[in-house]
Design a protein around this nucleic acid. Structure first.
Length: 492
RNA sequence: GGUUCCUUCGUCUAAUGGUUAGGACAGGAGAUUCUCAGUCUCUAAAUAGGGGUUCGAUUCCCCUAGGAACUACCA
């Protein structure tokens, strides 16, 4: 039997790390076993639904390079793949269960249910949940309630005795007493929309899903789903509950831990390959020593057996490390084009960039690449190039172990050595040597010469290396800035 | 509270019924380069606790502790 798996998110918010981890595991499992990866949109919650979320789902998967074999947009033989377009199907199946006596109409108002819940909590009753008030209504009673215009929900009859077991590839057998399963859960809401449980089970069956890979938070509803499959007389698919992605404190990863939306990571300048590589390594590993895995490699070597049982904490620092590694591995051209939007947004270059600006960005890549954890770091790194904000505090120019006079000499003499050398096309190493011997003469450390010049050119103590900076600024502008610094030191 | 699940360095993880319990990130130290970053070297750091089974257990079993998820006309 060919593997068919699905990622079935609900478009009620931006795609987050946990979600795409589930998507990735499904996708890699499908690819590595020659199966199909299906995307299904579970938009049955009309209150939390948003168009923006749906767009974010598509654009996030697209950015990550995850293509679905069947689903919205691309279609497929089991469509439609958006649950709100399958409305009639759920109603039909729910009513079928009612006809067969496996489910029933319930007319209880939300108010009554609320009151019931309150009482159960207050009395610390062992019995929690719906009291099956409508389970045995007579036809007359039902007709009366219908006449009042009350729109009923459909509830599943959950057995009160016995137990239900399902097998999970990762967890093994999981058993739950039927009396502990949420009593008579709603399958069809009063607005005619299905709940997750109903729609999910029906669609997974109708779409021929063979393996259900989803987060462990769904384990508690496993037995309920099995009950539903049995009620319909359908074969239960293979379950595979994925370990959760937690925050630093061991709780489900959420906003208070930091960024969780893929969109945010993307905006900050994380590369898709870094996200994919790192996220896949939370809850899964190839062999314990392989760190770098490309999407293509994972499409081949991903094995379900290597998925862990225990939840994993999301480590932002390790993601940063992966990202900085991938930035360095990427081609200069690619990084240049990725960097451009950040520079435009900072107001450093025009949109679209001029030829001259493009050239500058291109030159910037090499020295900047090794210094970035995320692409947005480029703004701080390249500020000196586009915004000239000279440092007027002399102390900033003075290196440790140097003084006012020596710093001024370093600027004047160093500048002369530097620019004369450059005009004569001397090798940078040669000029560097000469600057070093200047330091010796001035009796300062090497930095005593370099720091003032660097600060003069880059307006900062922390900057790109001197020669890179000059290359970027150009000799005339560099000289201008140096001259300005010398004048500063000539004052008073 | 109830139900279910989980437990190897701070974090992600590897390994085996017999190893000096391995790797990576983060941390610390040092080297190097004009600052920063980087790179290189070194370093510290774990089998939750208690019982069994066994010649031997981190590995198998039980208990305890800790943690998590679920407990909606949300998914």
């Amino acid at each position: 039997m060919d593997v068919r798996v699905r990622y079935a998110p609900s478009p009620t918010g931006l795609q987050h790390i946990g979600g795409i981890r589930t998507a990735l595991f499904n996708y890699f499992f499908a690819k590595s076993s020659g199966g199909k990866f299906i995307l299904r949109v579970e938009d049955t919650d009309r209150e939390r639904y948003s168009d923006e979320s749906l767009e974010d789902l598509y654009s996030t998967l697209d950015w990550l390079g995850i293509k679905w074999d069947e689903g919205p947009v691309v279609g497929g033989p089991y469509g439609p793949y958006i649950q709100s377009e399958r409305f009639d199907i759920y109603k039909e199946y729910a009513e079928k269960l009612v006809k067969e006596g496996k489910a029933y109409y319930c007319y209880c108002t939300p108010e009554r249910l609320e009151k019931l819940r309150e009482e159960q909590v207050k009395s610390k009753s062992e019995y929690q949940g719906y009291d099956r008030h409508c389970a045995n209504l007579t036809d007359e009673e039902r007709a009366e309630l219908e006449k009042q215009g009350i729109k009923p929900v459909i509830r599943l009859k959950v057995p009160t005795t016995g137990k239900t077991t399902f097998h999970d590839v990762i967890m093994g057998d999981i058993t739950r007493k039927n009396k502990d399963i949420s009593p008579d859960p709603i399958l069809l809401k009063s607005d005619g929309f299905p709940t997750y449980h109903l729609a999910n089970v029906i669609d997974d069956h109708l779409m021929g899903i063979t393996h259900i890979m989803r987060a462990q938070e769904w384990i508690p509803s496993g037995p309920l789903h099995v009950l539903l499959y049995e009620a319909f007389g359908w074969e239960v698919p293979t379950y595979c509950h994925l370990p959760m992605v937690m925050g630093k404190d061991g709780q489900k990863l959420s906003k208070r831990h930091g960024s969780t939306a893929v969109r945010e990571f993307r905006d900050k300048g994380y590369l898709p390959e870094a996200i994919i590589n790192y996220v896949t390594l939370v809850g899964w590993s190839l062999d314990g020593s392989t760190e770098f895995l490309s999407k293509e490699e994972l499409e081949h070597c991903f094995k379900m057996e290597n998925i862990h049982k225990n939840p994993g904490k999301f480590d932002y620092k390790k993601l940063d490390w992966f990202n900085s590694q991938y930035i360095r591995m990427a081609s200069d051209d690619r990084i240049a084009s990725l960097l451009t939007p950040y520079l435009v947004k900072a107001g450093f270059i025009s949109d679209p960039p001029t030829k001259e600006e493009e050239e500058k960005v291109r030159l910037l890549v090499a020295p900047a690449k090794e210094r970035m954890k995320v692409l947005s770091d480029i703004v701080e790194l390249s500020k000196f190039l586009f915004k000239d904000e000279p440092v007027s505090d002399k102390d900033v120019y003075i290196a440790k172990g140097s003084d006012l006079v020596k710093t001024k000499d370093a600027l004047v003499e160093g500048g002369k050595i530097l620019f004369d050398g450059l005009r004569e096309n001397k090798a940078e190493e040669k000029i560097e040597e000469e600057l070093m011997s200047l330091a010796e003469r001035l009796e300062v450390k090497v930095n005593g010469v370099f720091q003032p010049i660097r600060v003069a050119l880059t307006n900062s103590q922390v900057s790109l290396p001197l020669f890179d900076s000059i290359r970027l600024l150009g000799i005339p502008e560099s000289e201008r800035r140096l001259e300005r610094a010398i004048n500063l030191f000539k004052e008073n």
